[in-house]
Structure formats: structure tokens, C-alpha cells
Design a protein around this nucleic acid. Structure first.
Lengths: 199, 199
DNA sequence: TGGGTAAGTTACTCCGAAGTCATATCAAGG
DNA sequence: CCTTGATATGACTTCGGAGTAACTTACCCA
């Protein structure tokens, strides 16, 4: 590739790099993606990424922030609708499927188990986890209060179970690309109804 | 360290190395553990590991096989007891807590997201996943049949949710070291009863 | 007693990926 | 026309971890 400028303004280039990085990090994971990889996919060279983002983690933080903002905002939007119980759960799942449909890789980017747990990345991760814990606890609390259970550890564990059920359903959907958001929402509704209504 | 033999027979040494490797891989993950690391913890040198196990993956496969055998055997044991529904679920969780109490690191070793998905490791992983899928599907099937739902995708998704709920409860327990297996089993029983009995 | 073999180590090579340095091109303004 | 700053790259250094070559010691047995 020839050396010298191509006339692309910094902000445009940054946006392009971040878009490519979101996809790569999301599809291959943090550990499975090298900076050279992102550079190649973006059609530029590695030093440009270092010039604009400082380090691999610097780039990752920006991509992560962008992806997490989209997903958390969607969850907070549906939470604010005021539904409760199964209805709230289904609404949240439905919103997530719709947001993810055009860019499914955002999901695994935000919940990447290979992301580093140090430095600024850890801070960003902790920040979003915090918000999800608040929302999840909120959605799950009345279930326990209904049966007179006010044990905080029970609440913590139940919240964890719900969060992971949510993640599992989204993960299942991502692993079955033929399924539309509508179909998947209907499936979730059926399953949740079975769990809570049955036996 | 002095060179030359220390008189430890190969089989003894192998067993010792595998025990150390289980713990290291389980506590730090496959990616976060180097062969030199295991060697140091075992009080021997790196080439001895290569002489006995061939490669890092070779060692990992042996450790993984050993750990997975313990855990899957326990799940199959409780499954064979013939309980159904919540009772079966609680029984399985209880058995797992008891097995893991003296060696909690086995859990994360078997479900290590940083393990490679290539070569023999992938085969071993797939083999155990297969057995877990069979057991999980079995435990979850009647729940759907009870409401006249015979959609195979619903079954697949519900099984995934149950597997991850199981993993989450075990993970929660591991993250709260003060809790005895008995206490945790009781908690699981409360939570499952709330889910299935309530609302 | 001396050679073969199992058990063991030191000191190396090799490789991939993070990160850096020096340089090149272009556009705009004096 | 010529300098300056922004955009860009090829070629480099560095580092950690996988894997290897060559050597050493102790024990057993003819």
C-alpha cells in the first residue's frame, strides 16, 4: 500500500475503525482478535490504530462503550415501560432481539469472557454490570416478596439466574440464525409461561 | 535445582502433575496458565511435562478428562435415582455441591470459556457436552409435554436455559465461599419452588 | 564394575502479537 | 514556492510463552 495521506478526516476514520473493531471483537472475541487483524479488515495499517486509540485496550474500550450503550439503553427503555413479571421479561427480550437483528455481534462483544479484567476495560465492564444488576434485581424482586422471602442472598442468586437465562435465550437465538425476532419472542413467551404457570 | 533423577516413578509424577494442572487450569483458566507455571507449582521443570504429556493441550486433555469424569459421573448418578421435576433438579445440584466442596476448581476447569476449540480438546469437550445435553433434555422434557408442547426448538432452548441456570447456581455458590452445600441446596430448593409454584 | 535406561534439568530456538520509529504524501496558507 | 501539520505506512523492536536439544544423575542388573 502506498504511503502518505488519503485525505480521510480523523473522525471519519475513527468511526470506521470502531465499526470494524466492534464486528471483529464481537465475532472472534477480544483474545482472538489482533490489532493487525482489525487494521487489515479496515483497509488501513496498524500504526494508524495506535495513533488514534493508543493501544489495543484503548480501541476495545471505545468499541465496548459504544456497543454497551446501545444494549443497556434498550434494556432501560423497555424497563421504563412499566410492565411487570413475565410481561416485562418478554418485552425486554423482544426489544433486545430487534436491536440485535442488524448487528448481532454487539451481544458477544459486550459479554466477551475473554475480555481483560484490568485497567479501564474492567471499569467500563463493571459500570455496565452495575446497571444491569440494578435492572435485573428490580425485575425479579416482587417474585420473592410475593412468597414472603426477603433473604438478600436469595435475591442475589435469583437475579443471577434470571440474567443468565436472559443471556442464554439471546445466545440460543444467535445460534439459530434462521429465526426472526417475532418467532423468538413468541418462543420465549411460551417457555416463560410454561415455567411460571405449570406444575 | 540439581539435575538428574529424584527417583519418583513416572506414574506417580504424572498423577502429581495432573493434580496440580487441574487446580491451575481451574483457577486461572487455560489461557491464563502457562506450562512453566504448572511446572513451577509442581516443583519440577517444564521439559518433564513435555516428556510425559507431549504438549500443553496434551496435559490439558488429561486434566479435563479427569475432572469431567468426576462431575459427569455425579450428575449421572443422581439422574439414575429416578426423581423427577424439581426434586430431580435439587438432587442434582446437591450432589454437585458435595462433590465440588473439596475441589471447587474442577467446575471452572470443565466449563472454561478460554479452552481451545480445536484438536483433541474439542473432541473431549464435545463428548461431555453431548452427555450433559442428553441428561438435561431428559430432565426438562416432561415440563413441555405437560402443556402439550412438542416443538423440538422449544425443548432445545428450554434445555439450554436449564443448563445455564444450573451453571449459574453453582457459579454463585463458588463466588460465596462461606456457604455450605446444605445451605446452598436449601436455597436452590426455595428458589425453584418459588419459580414453579408462584404467580 | 560398567553399561543401559528412566528421571530430570539448563539453556536454547521459534513465533505471534503488542507496540514504536522513521519516513512519506498531501493540502493549505503565507 | 515553501513550510507546516494532518494523515498515512514499512520496517523495526520487544516480550512472553510453546516447544526442543543436549546434557546429567541415579539406579538396576549382568
Amino acid at each position: 500500500m502506498r504511503t502518505g495521506t488519503k485525505g480521510v478526516p480523523r473522525l471519519d476514520r475513527e468511526a470506521q475503525i470502531v465499526a470494524v473493531a466492534c464486528r471483529r471483537f464481537g465475532e472472534q472475541g477480544y483474545a482472538g482478535t489482533s490489532v493487525a487483524d482489525v487494521a487489515l479488515a479496515a483497509g488501513i495499517s496498524k500504526p494508524l490504530i495506535y495513533q488514534y486509540f493508543g493501544s489495543k485496550d484503548g480501541l476495545y474500550v471505545v468499541a465496548l462503550r459504544e456497543a454497551a450503550a446501545v444494549l443497556v439503553a434498550e434494556i432501560e427503555r423497555t424497563a421504563a415501560l412499566g410492565a411487570v413479571g413475565i410481561e416485562r421479561a418478554v418485552l425486554t427480550l423482544d426489544g433486545m432481539f430487534r436491536v440485535l437483528e442488524p448487528q448481532p455481534w454487539l451481544w458477544r462483544l459486550v459479554f466477551d469472557p475473554s475480555a481483560p479484567r484490568t485497567g479501564e476495560v474492567a471499569e467500563v465492564l463493571a459500570e455496565h454490570e452495575e446497571r444491569l444488576v440494578v435492572l435485573g434485581t428490580d425485575g425479579v424482586r416482587d417474585l420473592l416478596e410475593l412468597v414472603g422471602n426477603d433473604d438478600p442472598d436469595d435475591l442475589s442468586a435469583l437475579r443471577a439466574v434470571w440474567e443468565n437465562a436472559f443471556r442464554t435465550l439471546v445466545g440460543w437465538w444467535l445460534d439459530h440464525p434462521g429465526t426472526t425476532p417475532e418467532e423468538m419472542t413468541a418462543r420465549c413467551e411460551r417457555l416463560l409461561a410454561t415455567l411460571f404457570g405449570g406444575s
